[in-house]
Nucleic acid binder design. Structure first.
Lengths: 192, 192
DNA sequence: AGGGAATTCTAGCACTGCTAGACAATCGAG
DNA sequence: CTCGATTGTCTAGCAGTGCTAGAATTCCCT
C-alpha cells in the first residue's frame, strides 16, 4: 500500500517538474522554444512521458496558465489590501496587474494569448480562473458607480488592463507613459 | 519595354492573389491552416514562388495586417463621420472598431495577435498603421478632457477596445452584454 | 531558330507534435 | 528467492511544418 503511495507522490512531483520546467523555458526563450523534445530533455525523460501526464502540449500550457492565475490573484489581493481608500486601492490593483504581466510575460501569454484549452465564462471554468476574476471583483465592485453591475464593470476594467498589457508588451504602445495611462484609466473609470 | 511592364503587372497581380488567398484561408479555417503548401496549392504555384514575393510566412501575415489596417481606418472614419455630436461619434467609433474585429477575426489577429514583423510606435512604422491610429485620434482627441494629451487618451481608449475585442473573441468574456460594455466605456472615458 | 536569361519546380533539410510497439524495471505470489 | 505479470519507459517513426539549393523549364531577344 505504501509503495503505491510513494509512486503516486513521485508521479505528482514529476508532473510539477514538467510544468515548472515548461514555464521556466518559456520565460527564458519564449513559448516557441518550448518543444516537446526540449522539454523532455530538460526533465531528463523521453517525450512519451509527457503524454502520460498531459494530453498534449496545449494541456501543459493550460497548467502553466492555472498556476499563473493563482499567483496573479494573490498579487492583486496583496496589493489591494496594502492600500487605503478606494481610489488608491484600484490604482494599486491596476499596477499589480500590469506588473505581473510585465514580469511574467510567458505566463501571461499562457493565460490569455495562447490556447491552453481552458474554458472561460462557463460554469466549468477552472477554479483558479474564477478566483482571479473574483480578486479583481473584490476591489472593483465597489467603484462601479450607481446602477452599474459590478461584474460588468469589472469586465470592462479588466479588458482595459488587458489591452494595455498586451499592446505595451507587443511594442504597439511606447512603454514610457505607462503610469500616466494607469492614472487616466483609474480616474475616469472608477467612481470613488 | 512593354513586355517588361506586363511582367511586372502580372507579378503584382500574383502578389495580391497571395495576400488575398492567405486572408481568405485564414478567415475560413484559421491561421493555423495557412501553411505554405496549402497556400501554394490554392494559388496554383509551387511553394518557392511565395518566397520570391515575401521573405517568409511572417511577411505574408504582415501584408494581410496592412490591408486590414487600411480597411479598419476607413471603417472607423465612415462610422464616425455618420454620427452627430461628440458622444455619439465616439460610440459609433467604438462599435465600428469592435464590429471590424468580430467580422474579420483573422485579419485582426494578423494586425495585433500574430507576429507580422511590423514595427509599431516608431518612425519606421508602415503608413497604414500610423493612419489607422490617426483615424482613432481624429475622433478621440477632442474628448480627451482638459490637460490630457490627446495621443495618450487615444492610446488608453484603443487599449480598452482592444481588450474587449480580444477577450470577447477568445471566449474570455460572455458575448452578451457587449453593447453595455461599450456604453460604459464611452460614458466614463470620453469627456464631452 | 537558337543562345541566354529569367522563372518555376522537384526534392530535400531540419524541425514540429504525437504515438505504436519493443524493451526494461518492478511487484506480488509461490 | 525466483519467476510470471504488470507497470513503466524508451526507441523509432509518422505526417506535418517553414524554408531552400539546384535542376528543369519557359520565355525573350537577336
Amino acid at each position: 500500500m505504501s509503495v503505491h503511495q510513494r509512486k503516486e507522490r513521485e508521479r505528482a512531483d514529476r508532473e510539477r517538474l514538467i510544468v515548472a520546467t515548461a514555464r521556466e523555458l518559456a520565460e527564458q526563450q519564449g513559448w516557441d522554444a518550448v518543444t516537446t523534445r526540449r522539454l523532455a530533455e530538460r526533465i531528463e525523460y523521453s517525450q512519451p512521458v509527457l503524454y502520460s501526464h498531459f494530453r498534449g502540449k496545449r494541456e501543459i500550457i493550460g497548467a502553466v496558465a492555472l498556476e499563473g492565475a493563482a499567483e496573479m490573484a494573490a498579487a492583486v489581493r496583496t496589493a489591494a489590501s496594502a492600500a487605503d481608500g478606494p481610489r488608491s486601492r484600484v490604482a494599486a490593483l491596476a499596477r499589480a496587474y500590469l506588473d505581473f504581466a510585465q514580469r511574467n510575460p510567458a505566463v501571461y501569454d499562457a493565460m490569455f494569448q495562447l490556447d491552453g484549452g481552458l474554458a472561460f465564462a462557463h460554469e466549468d471554468t477552472p477554479e483558479p480562473l474564477k478566483d482571479a476574476f473574483a480578486a479583481l471583483l473584490e476591489s472593483l465592485g465597489g467603484v462601479a458607480g450607481d446602477g452599474v453591475h459590478p461584474g460588468l464593470f469589472t469586465e470592462v476594467f479588466w479588458a482595459a488592463l488587458h489591452g494595455l498589457a498586451t499592446l505595451t508588451r507587443a511594442g504597439r504602445l511606447p512603454p514610457e507613459h505607462t503610469e500616466w495611462r494607469v492614472e487616466l484609466l483609474v480616474d475616469r473609470l472608477a467612481i470613488v
